[in-house]
């Protein structure tokens, strides 16, 4: 065997190894990046939960306020559609109901339409989030127990 031929074949096998190693490393890096970029972050449930809590925690919504905000106590004077819109805007359709008082308000007049669309879509992906919270309702300085039922649609 000629000396040049040996050097050439030796170099060639070395190069093949280098190229294969490069491809493997390159592929691994791409795969790792792709995996992290392709993750879908589901935050709908958290958004709905925060919106619901805001209703009875914040004095900008329904929470009664004396010297400070009283979470969980609903001031009946604040329980209006106008206040609901100001508090949570119209971004997420929301319907709130005081069970014992039998009062229901919503931030959108077309809430039922949104609900129907959501129910059709709901088979694929959850968009309706519901919650029931035991609250006290303050009316003319008196407290009465009630259940605050909330439905939020987050798409």
């Amino acid at each position: 065997m000629k000396k040049g031929a040996y050097i050439l074949s030796g170099e060639l096998s070395l190069w093949i190894n280098r190229i294969l190693l490069t491809i493997v490393v390159f592929g691994s890096v791409l795969f790792t990046i792709d995996q992290s970029l392709s993750k879908d972050i589901e935050i709908e449930e958290s958004i709905a939960d925060m919106a619901i809590r805001r209703l009875y925690y914040s004095s900008s919504c329904f929470a009664s306020e004396d010297l400070s905000s009283d979470p969980g106590v609903v001031d009946i004077k604040k329980f209006t559609e106008k206040r609901l819109v100001n508090c949570l805007t119209k971004k997420y359709p929301i319907r709130v109901r005081l069970e014992n008082k039998n009062i229901q308000i919503s931030n959108l007049k077309s809430f039922n339409d949104e609900l129907n669309i959501c129910k059709v879509q709901n088979k694929k992906e959850k968009c309706l989030f519901e919650n029931e919270q035991y609250v006290l309702v303050k009316e003319n300085g008196n407290l009465k127990q009630d259940i605050l039922k909330v439905e939020v649609i987050v798409k």
Binding site: S38, I41, E42, S46
Partner: peptide, 13 residues
Amino acid sequence: LKNVEEIISSKKI
């Protein structure tokens, strides 16, 4: 990103 298999889910507290 909706059709991707891997999902990070932030459940409500």
